[in-house]
Design a binder for these strands. Structure first.
Lengths: 194, 194, 194, 194
DNA sequence: AATGAATGAGCCTTCATTCAT
DNA sequence: TATGAATGAAGGCTCATTCAT
């Protein structure tokens, strides 16, 4: 039964993810999840004891998927290509309407007292900075990029991405605008006469 | 009695603001506000009919205060000083723990279908970009700054500020880190040999 | 001031009457009356302490007016004319949409434990029976009517009127239908060959 | 469990019926029903979402019972016997103190904008007229009754019944009085020399 | 007399959680 | 495992009534 159980658990998380994407975190009730999954109230409790538990589980799955993307970056393309790929992923996340957990995560982690090292948003952010920094350094080394402060630039880029993410959800932002902002940063890295 | 009424209304908004700062938007109930104000349930309904109405009113007051700050920028200091002043205000907002409406606003406006021109977050953002752009242009003209794309830079700065605001609430961020990020941008504006 | 007071009291009752006619009795609140009168909550309490008190007062005024109508019947017309006049009044009451207290009265007196002799609805009913009976007797004496049991016929007529009143409010009834029912009774009184 | 559910639903309707009979319609709250049924607030909402919904359901059950009575009339007794049976039923309804929905129905349907053909009170009334008319016609044919206008007489009878119903609830009426009124009508149908 | 702000009780409705089946 | 009926707490809203002005 463990196999069957695991499948049902996964099914619940998929449905719950849609709910969180749709309604954020705070507005989601066990009832919402029960209805989305079309299972019984009691049935849900066999797998999860609270909305928070479900959300944490959804986020965990999420992180695993992120790892895949990050792994994919580890090939031997040029730094410029890899940074472009990374930004394309970010752009997709910024703009995606369906199934985005951005707002739900903000709601969940806002004012949550949690040791920094345990905060998955922090991990994700730091990982992003780390990746970008490495890519920039590689680019500088290969002559593709010019950058006096790769770490600073990487942070700048990731904060802009954060700003774009939240802006996309709250004030609306066009794909062109996202392109423009990311391009602005990229151009700052390119040698002047290009 | 209209005088007294207005004062009580203001009092309620002050207390409510603390509640929104503390709990965000979605989790706030009329009961929370009632208890924060130490008035009766019915008493609150004399002034406001819903949490949303209260939040809108809190935001309106907020905006008025913003206007004051913006007005204060219209003096004859140098562009550099004025940009520094502007960033100091932003930094204060980014870091303030008490009474920050950032998260509550994000919760409220996320996924809210609202004409862009009516969205106060958008107005605030655009106003910020406008101010920064003007300051940079002035600085370029006076030789304080070097910048090929003042508008792009202004946007970049404001998105970083957005990113810092949300990060401060969700993953935590030190004052030093904020300084570092803002400085990174400022330095990009200064002539190379400084 | 007693003069002024009396006028205001009367004003309140007029407005309240409209409210009772519109909403019945049970659904009417002090707030409804306050709003209909456009006076202050406290102001209303200076005159009446409860909805019930207001309703009783409205009914009392009502009864006084009825007395006028009854008095008007006491002239020297023929019994047939007078019965026709009486029925015309009843018909008006049955059909009137505005300002009818029929339903409010039913709501108020239903299941109210009240000595029969104090019940104004009962008084009104009995008075009606008495009038009709007298008219029929007069008509029989003058040869206009034929009726073996004037009292029974009077009661029958008044119960039909009651039935029409309540039916008009609950299932709807056309003017033609009211005419038809009243005519049916009248014809029962007329000598066969007329 | 659907069986159990149906039983509980029925139980609730029985208890609710008592409440409506006791308090009319407008004064009945979900709380009243909850307490009458001795179940939890939430429990009631599993079956019904509002007082109105409950009342409609109670009325539906009612109507079904009525159908039974009407069916019972379809045997081969004489017209006089059947009319007497019909009137006995009406009398029972007029006089019953417990569980009478008369007033609640009046309250509910008064001023309710509803297509005439959907109004159950209207249906009941029209059905009554139809039955009585048929019985009278049969009686005339068999020589039991004399009546020039069976339809008019049937309407008259039903309006008297309506008048008696509402009078019984509002001004009080004795069993003897009911007998007297119904007898008055019946006698009007009988050949003169009886 | 008159006002209307203020209170608090009362009922409404939803949902997290439990539990018998 | 799975169901869904049942409970009760929580928060919403309205209004009768009071009272300082």
């Amino acid at each position: 039964m463990s196999e069957k159980s695991a499948q049902k658990r996964k099914y619940i998380l998929e449905k719950a993810r849609e709910v969180f994407a749709e309604k954020g975190y705070k507005n989601v009730t066990m009832k919402d999840v029960v209805e989305a999954c079309d299972i019984s109230r009691g049935g849900l409790y066999l797998y999860f004891s609270s909305v928070e538990e479900i959300f944490i589980a959804v986020l965990s799955d999420e992180t695993e998927e992120d790892d895949d993307v990050i792994a994919a970056l580890g090939n031997d393309a040029t730094a410029g290509d890899m940074l472009a790929l990374f930004l394309k992923e970010q752009k997709k996340e910024i703009l995606r309407k369906k199934n985005s957990l951005v707002i739900a995560s903000y709601e969940y982690f806002a004012n949550k007292d949690m040791p920094i090292q345990d905060n998955p948003l922090r991990k994700q952010f730091d990982a992003g900075v780390q990746i970008v920094e490495t890519l920039i350094e590689n680019g500088v080394r290969s002559g593709e990029f010019i950058c006096a402060d790769p770490y600073g630039c990487a942070r700048n880029l990731m904060y802009v991405v954060e700003g774009l993410k939240v802006s996309a959800k709250t004030i609306g932002i066009s794909e062109a605008a996202v392109d423009r902002e990311l391009l602005y940063i990229l151009e700052g890295l390119l040698p002047a006469d290009n």
